[in-house]
């Protein structure tokens, strides 16, 4: 099984590496990080902006232009954008086999279907982690370039630890999307699913039940949503883990035991 997963993972990485979508997600990660840095720069230097909506927004921003605020801002960004970005990645990895009609080529092979599913999930995790690292590096580079004040190594290490945990929490949300992609046999259903989950995450967060809705939990961890009922407990992490487990199991069952047309 391990050998099958390793071999299949190599193929998945080859497919990802050669795909246009890989470059698009990498470009998006860089772009979004640069935007955050630029926003901080505008807060530091609001006078360089011409009068208009952007200048008004910058003037109304309550965020201070320093490293602590920048890191807080980035954590919120990672928790919110991550749901969409990671959801998109997992939708492509699973949905493309149906959209490109290549699924039938990987169903009756000496490598088990379970190994193929697991290798796809691992490949998705690697790809998502790469996007996270890219966001991290470009954000830090941009912050250094615009010379934000109040830097400290401890602050940086705290940020890396928290953002890494948020990324891991987001990864736990990928398997249910893989299941929807496998059941929906394409990209549309999982992307729709991710958008609905994102909407529900905000709804549950705002009504104080976010700690019990898996897609809100990373946002609560990053303090993107605050207020009553936003404290995470052991139950929150159990719910998130069970959601992940249900997604993995559902996808494996879907690939192994349902009719594949």
């Amino acid at each position: 099984m391990i050998k099958d997963i390793a071999v299949s993972l190599g193929i998945e990485i080859l497919k990802i590496r050669k795909s246009m979508i890989f470059r698009i997600t990498a470009g998006f990660s860089v772009f979004i990080s640069l935007i955050m840095g630029m926003f901080m720069y505008f807060i530091m230097h609001p006078d360089i902006l011409p009068p208009g909506l952007l200048k008004t927004k910058v003037n109304l921003a309550t965020v201070a232009a320093d490293w602590p605020s920048y890191f807080d801002f980035l954590l919120m960004l990672i928790s919110a954008i991550g749901i969409i970005l990671f959801g998109f990645i997992i939708s492509w990895i699973f949905g493309r086999e149906y959209a490109d009609k290549t699924i039938k080529d990987i169903l009756s092979l000496p490598a088990s279907r379970t190994a193929i599913v697991l290798s796809k999930l691992i490949a998705a995790a690697i790809w998502c982690m790469l996007c996270y690292v890219l966001i991290l590096l470009v954000s830090l580079g941009t912050g250094a370039l615009i010379d934000l004040p109040l830097w400290s190594t401890k602050l940086l290490l705290d940020f890396i630890r928290t953002s890494f945990i948020i990324t891991c929490l987001l990864l736990l949300l990928c398997p249910p999307t893989a299941y929807v992609a496998s059941t929906g046999r394409g990209y549309l259903a999982p992307i729709g699913f991710v958008i609905i989950c994102m909407g529900l995450a905000n709804l549950f967060g705002n009504i104080g039940l976010g700690a019990y809705f898996p897609w809100t939990i990373p946002m609560l961890y990053s303090n993107a949503i605050e207020g009553p009922g936003s404290e995470l407990s052991v139950v929150s992490y159990i719910i998130l883990s069970l959601t992940c487990l249900a997604g993995i199991t559902g996808t494996i069952v879907q690939w192994n035991y349902t009719d594949q047309h």
């Binding site: 071999v7 080859l14 490109d100 009609k101 290549t102 039938k104 080529d105 000496p110």
Partner: peptide
């Protein structure tokens, strides 16, 4: 070979065959 033959569009002919040869060990 089932129905119309589809392969990974972003991979070359050789890469598609290499992928199959690896999956078949």
């Amino acid at each position: 070979l089932v129905e119309l033959p589809f392969s990974y569009p972003e991979l070359t002919v050789r890469e598609n065959l290499t992928a199959v040869s690896r999956l078949r060990r």
